[in-house]
């Protein structure tokens, strides 16, 4: 109960982020997000399987133009996200503190998340040159292998509420994939705040979709969904993996395990994370042999 002279604080409802919009869950279900002391700080949507389905449809719809967007433009968009997080840094830090982090830990986490975005922003137009090959085949053919995004990727965000999320999201979208993020069950607020940043940056709708809800309820629907190409599971604890792998079998989804707990480590950031979510495509084309030895002309 507040004193009458104090201003009434406005409790925020954290909505879902699907297809570039902030709908409430179609199920109409909410849970209270509590701070470290057990006080209610906000209402969170409890996403349903239908919300998942909508998010996957949105991600699939956005894939074509996102994956074919100029790589340096993808980089600029990631950089723009970093700029906006930086400009709202205090809000992110405060929110992390609400979720139980110390001021210094929250600051470190936010700074690292911004740097992570910038790191991957820079990779967007470079990883292709690192991982592609021109293959010297014996026949008269030009043969090259390039990376292509796997497609729609489901990210099960790790407990590190902002940095962990950014560390899985950035390499995913830097590589031209679109994402459906299931925010960490325990600490979801930063994910939705990040969605608000994404919304006001230049990320096209549907490229990143963020859901809050119950893992136990939503995982089977997400992992068995036949129109999802890959799942990233980023908890160090591998307990969920067997069930994920089994459920992913229906369409042979790629299941990636990025088992980390300390997302602050520098080696967490790597172009190999981008590669993990790429398919390698090899193209052959004949080479005409005119002039020179061995030519029929």
């Amino acid at each position: 109960m507040k004193k009458s002279t104090q201003r009434l604080s406005v409790l925020k409802t954290y909505k879902l982020y699907i297809g570039g919009q902030f709908p409430r869950t179609e199920s109409g279900r909410y849970v209270a997000a509590l701070d470290a002391n057990g006080n209610k700080i906000a209402n969170l949507c409890l996403a349903s399987r239908k919300d998942c389905r909508e998010a996957i449809v949105a991600a699939r719809g956005a894939l074509g133009s996102w994956s074919q967007r100029a790589a340096n433009n993808r980089g600029q968009i990631l950089y723009r996200i970093a700029e906006l997080v930086e400009s709202r840094k205090e809000a992110f830090i405060a929110e992390l503190q609400q979720q139980g982090l110390s001021r210094s830990a929250a600051t470190r986490e936010t700074n690292a998340a911004i740097d992570c975005l910038i790191y991957y922003a820079g990779w967007c137009d470079k990883y292709q040159a690192i991982f592609s090959t021109v293959n010297p085949v014996a026949s008269s053919h030009y043969n090259f292998s390039v990376c292509e995004p796997m497609g729609v990727v489901t990210l099960l965000a790790p407990a590190s509420p902002l940095l962990g999320l950014v560390s899985v999201l950035a390499p995913c979208v830097a590589g031209g994939n679109t994402a459906v993020v299931l925010a960490n069950e325990k600490r979801s607020l930063s994910a939705i705040s990040l969605a608000e940043v994404l919304h006001s940056s230049d990320v096209p709708g549907g490229v990143v979709n963020i859901l809050t809800g119950s893992y136990a309820e939503l995982l089977p629907w997400i992992v068995e969904h036949r129109d999802v190409n890959a799942v990233v599971y980023a908890e160090k604890d591998a307990a969920q993996l067997p069930s994920l792998r089994t459920k992913a079998t229906g369409n042979l989804k790629r299941v990636l395990h990025w088992p980390l707990d300390d997302w602050q480590q520098a080696e967490v950031q790597s172009p190999y994370r981008i590669l993990d979510l790429q398919e390698i495509k090899t193209t052959w084309h004949p080479i005409q042999q005119i002039a020179g030895s061995g030519a029929s002309y």
Partner: peptide
């Protein structure tokens, strides 16, 4: 492209 069923150890 303009070929089919070609293989080479150097080609993934």
């Amino acid at each position: 492209a303009n070929s089919y069923n070609l293989f080479d150890p150097a080609s993934p």
